[in-house]
Design a binder for these strands. Structure first.
Lengths: 238, 238
DNA sequence: GAAATAGTGTCTGTAAGACATTATATT
DNA sequence: AATATAATGTCTTACAGACACTATTTC
């Protein structure tokens, strides 16, 4: 390959998609949007991850683009957002070579359904155990969603990620419940508490009444930008 | 944002860059290439990560593109390759909005310097503790390289990644040495051996003579595609 | 005071870290 | 036989998991 002196060669499409997780009704759920129904669009009427083309005029960088798309769908402006990866090939989009940069968002569960106001597209929350069937999502979004779930579940084993799925302040019993939901198994209370408090990433925020009989201590994250990494995974039992 | 019916809008450049690590002369090193010297090119003469534009005609997908660029520089065709992340913004390249998909390669140390035959660009191995100074690399490659080093060092704490830095078959003392080089600290032999063998990802490949006084058992990776994840990090001491 | 949930204490098994010891090759 | 390195064994300590127990609230 010699140096390309000219920039006049075909460019792939550049997109950003966002996998948005929340725990609602005691289940881990993901936000999907419906593709427009026009037959001229690819995958008309199919469910897809929220996202779309990078707008070179509006988006300063990929993260800003992801934040914009997330805000358009959820009206949430400061979620936990991390890069999941990118998917690009000549075949994933019938319109041509395209590459999407995928982000991964954890938000505190909104009680209301997603705001369908601003954006015309229909949106909905789907529990992970009740997703639209196999190969049901548009593009390669099935594969991307699988990767996102895998990443989330594996990181939950050894990080404080689930804390981002709760509104602050939250109690340790609440946080433990989130861990159990995402991990899909019970977690020992004593060990859980010791572990969380030993990592020293929570600030006390006063007792929280009302939730249960006895009030529990509320906590806030000391640093909402980054999760804490534990030195061991949960239940190394194999 | 309404649905874009036309595809006639500006597209960012799409690139793939590869961070290639090897252990040479008992040090972790990274492969860099020199940018062309023409003043018309961005960052002329500066060191950069190997990579470049996706070729929509030749590259079926991002991984294939990364493999092609890696092969062009090292003539190695089956390294360990994983996605590191992507960097995209309107400002990282003076030629316009661009996004690069960055891969992360671990290869067994070539004794010879990188093949400069096929490709005209000058290439060189740089020990991580003797990199060209701060903000010396082209584009945002300083930042990308930092992220790659961070990822490597953190994964080494709890995965079998360093095994990809050795040619097969390798012995446990050799593997331990690689861990120590990448981690930058000593590792206890007994614990190391127990841990590696307990994870059951190595196949015996006969005793290896010549390396030292007493021959050591040689091993091959049972699965060269994926590293093994340990249930704990090394030295949880804090 | 009964019930429910928050929070703590105790015991045990496992495994890592430190370091001593044994084993097997080369010279 | 001396030496160097491979491989294993022993001891201690830390900590997760299991589970019992105590504490504090509401009704």
């Amino acid at each position: 390959m010699k140096t390309r002196t000219s920039l006049d060669f075909p460019r792939p499409f550049t997109l950003v998609d966002v996998v948005i997780f929340a725990v609602r009704a005691d289940r881990l759920q993901v936000l999907l949007v419906r593709r427009p129904a026009h037959e001229s669009d690819p995958f008309p009427g199919r469910w897809a991850l929220p996202g779309g083309f990078v707008d070179v005029a509006r988006d300063a960088d990929l993260l800003a683009c992801a934040q914009r798309k997330l805000f358009e769908k959820t009206a949430i402006d400061s979620p936990y957002l991390e890069q999941l990866g990118s998917w690009g090939s000549m075949r994933r989009d019938p319109r041509g070579w395209s590459a999407t940069h995928v982000y991964f968002a954890l938000i505190a569960a909104p009680d209301a359904p997603p705001a369908e106001g601003g954006n015309a597209a229909q949106a909905g929350w789907f529990p992970l155990d009740a997703l639209p069937g196999r190969r049901a999502l548009a593009f390669d979004h099935d594969e991307i969603l699988r990767a996102a779930i895998e990443r989330l579940q594996s990181k939950v084993e050894y990080t404080s990620l689930p804390a981002f799925l709760l509104p602050e302040p939250f109690t340790l019993p609440q946080l433990q419940r989130i861990y159990e939901i995402v991990l899909g198994r019970a977690v020992d209370k004593s060990g859980f508490r010791t572990r969380m408090l030993a990592m020293d990433f929570l600030d006390e925020a006063g007792y929280q009444s009302g939730e249960a009989k006895r009030p529990a201590m509320g906590y806030r994250l000391r640093d909402r930008r980054v999760p804490v990494v534990f030195p061991r995974t949960f239940n190394p039992r194999r």
